[in-house]
Nucleic acid binder design. Sequence first.
DNA 1: GTATTTATTTAGTGAACAATACAAAAATGT
DNA 2: ACATTTTTGTATTGTTCACTAAATAAATAC
Lengths: 205, 205
Amino acid sequence: MSEISKTKGRPRKFDKENALKIALHLFWRHGFEGVSVANLASSMGINVPSLYAAFGNKEQLFFKSVELYGKTNANIYAPALALDTAYEVAQAILLGEVDLVTNPEAPDGCLMVQGALVTSPESQELSDMMSKLRLTAEGWMADRFEKAIEDGDLPKNADAKALACFIMTVNSGIAVQAKTGVKRHELLKIVDYSLLAFRKIAMLD
Amino acid sequence: MSEISKTKGRPRKFDKENALKIALHLFWRHGFEGVSVANLASSMGINVPSLYAAFGNKEQLFFKSVELYGKTNANIYAPALALDTAYEVAQAILLGEVDLVTNPEAPDGCLMVQGALVTSPESQELSDMMSKLRLTAEGWMADRFEKAIEDGDLPKNADAKALACFIMTVNSGIAVQAKTGVKRHELLKIVDYSLLAFRKIAMLD
DNA sequence: GTATTTATTTAGTGAACAATACAAAAATGT
DNA sequence: ACATTTTTGTATTGTTCACTAAATAAATAC
């Protein structure tokens, strides 16, 4: 069952992980339909058939890019949700989003928002999948806030789902603003404001 | 100088304004690059050359769609900015956005956000134009809040630009959430929360 | 009636799209 | 040495892209 055995055929000339990273950055900047397979391949420094051999097709390459995105650039939720208080969770998610969308070594904005927010009818499923992923993250937050209510960290009459929806709304807004060109220090003000709001909404003070 | 004279050549068989409305709805739902000229023409009930004769080309058709959008569906800012207090302005803009992005007779979401948030490199100018339009609206808000500070409606040390940026961030977030499938009554909660935040940020109470 | 103007229809243009067929090349297994 | 496996490069598939040339049709101008 181990996969340690030497590969048999002709060895791949390019670094698959690095090629995937290049694809991710192109999808990130231009969206799924804003970049062509020919463009992807040449930017990755490979021929089109090598891309298909290594990644399947354009859609699967996009999925793998999203996966890499979640493991590297957008690894926000897992560590944030593990924090002690609902407030810290909200803070970590919003600050993590600002870091993500203004990272100078990556495209501006958020792949989950701009990767396939709108598409041609042919790619509707892909757009739906991205919506589901955003809703999944919102669900994680809602569950975490629910737990905070049970723990007594949030008041009993707090609305966990609505709080999560509020944070996700600000998150998405921050992503659009970053793509619009709004700078990091301005987005950090938005985070401060939103956290002030969070405390008030959650009736923490 | 009057343009009341009868048109000379063969009369157009289709209603130009209605055709433009159909184009607007397609761009709204699928984005500039998510719908083809052939698709636009057939949905408008006309042949492709008629589209070019009436509207120039795809880009100009998009511009005219944006213009129609501003005059009809998205006529939010002018009436909102004329209201008496900064709080009422913020409230009208956020509620107007929710109405806009959840109107059951139009596509979900906001054309200014999803029309060309990301594009292929060839359409970068178009994406930049949409960013500029969003920033223009934000500028209107900032100016209005500045005036509110001068009027004593907002405290002297309020940050007009940051307040405008906050409202625009929530606005964009609401647009993304509507496209994600979040329902009107949930978005109205977000508006309530954001207005609570607005009062606190602006130090109105 | 004839000329002029504009819209419509049909049938295309070359370029770009996602995806592949095929054969040569480069590794391993026996 | 030779068969097997996988990647590579070249060339190409059929389709869709934005856009248009050309002929016909329907109105007004004089």
